[in-house]
Design a protein around this nucleic acid. Sequence first.
DNA 1: CTGAATCCTTGCTGATACTG
DNA 2: CAGTATCAGCAAGGATTCAG
Lengths: 142, 142
Amino acid sequence: MSNSLTSEGLAALMQRGNLFSDKCPSRDVLKHVTSRWGVLVLLALMDGEQHRFSALKRKILGVSEKMLAQTLQLLESDGFVKRTVYPVVPPHVEYSLTDLGHKIAAQVVGLADWIEENFLQIMQAQEQYQAQQTSNLQHWQS
Amino acid sequence: MSNSLTSEGLAALMQRGNLFSDKCPSRDVLKHVTSRWGVLVLLALMDGEQHRFSALKRKILGVSEKMLAQTLQLLESDGFVKRTVYPVVPPHVEYSLTDLGHKIAAQVVGLADWIEENFLQIMQAQEQYQAQQTSNLQHWQS
DNA sequence: CTGAATCCTTGCTGATACTG
DNA sequence: CAGTATCAGCAAGGATTCAG
């Protein structure tokens, strides 16, 4: 059948702190949703509407067809994106978020928003770091 | 001086939805904290203790010295990690999270935890997707 | 002990061309 | 319209070596 899980195997997968041991499957999902285009796809689909492939391509500036298709496939395989095909000519495909997709999108966007909100502080830290590096540089230059 | 920001430039950087336009500096920070080792470093430092380089290397299984040093530098330059050097022989360096670091670590771990908590659903979606792909495969094989 | 520097391999990415 | 296939370029990642 499709579900071949043992309760022991499941327990091993679900325990916390698993991220430290390599090959943790959660890392793959994290990779998908935080990837360069993954974030943008989730963001683009968050309005709950149906979106066509070409519409997404227009909305997400700079993405190639290959990467968009690849990202959509990954997110679909994780159960975050729903792909609806209308068997007509010319082909018509629509993408939208699943319930699960909406939830993880909220998490990802929450993280992204936090960064944007606190970006001023981060930038100041970066400048301080830069200044520190520069002064160290000047030190051994003399 | 170190601060060369104009108010217009800052305003342009801070507006929401900026993630869509490429070269958004927030994307770099997002990349740092969600990178393969970035997540694990934040997780390892979340206890609030001081951690030595070699201790982190032992704690984060599989990380190379190069990537650990690189990750720590990035997180330090973003103001998330504090690096304390004790000028003794042999060298003694300690790493810990800043206040800002604790906050973003909470966000990142929140996302990671969400994935782990909902991993059962995700895995089921992956199995369904796999099954679907396999059946499609068998279709044209015959 | 804590890294920096080097080399080398891998994998991601994007441009192009092609299919149903 | 909605992709797939292929290939080339580049950057991330890792192993090793060297240095303060």
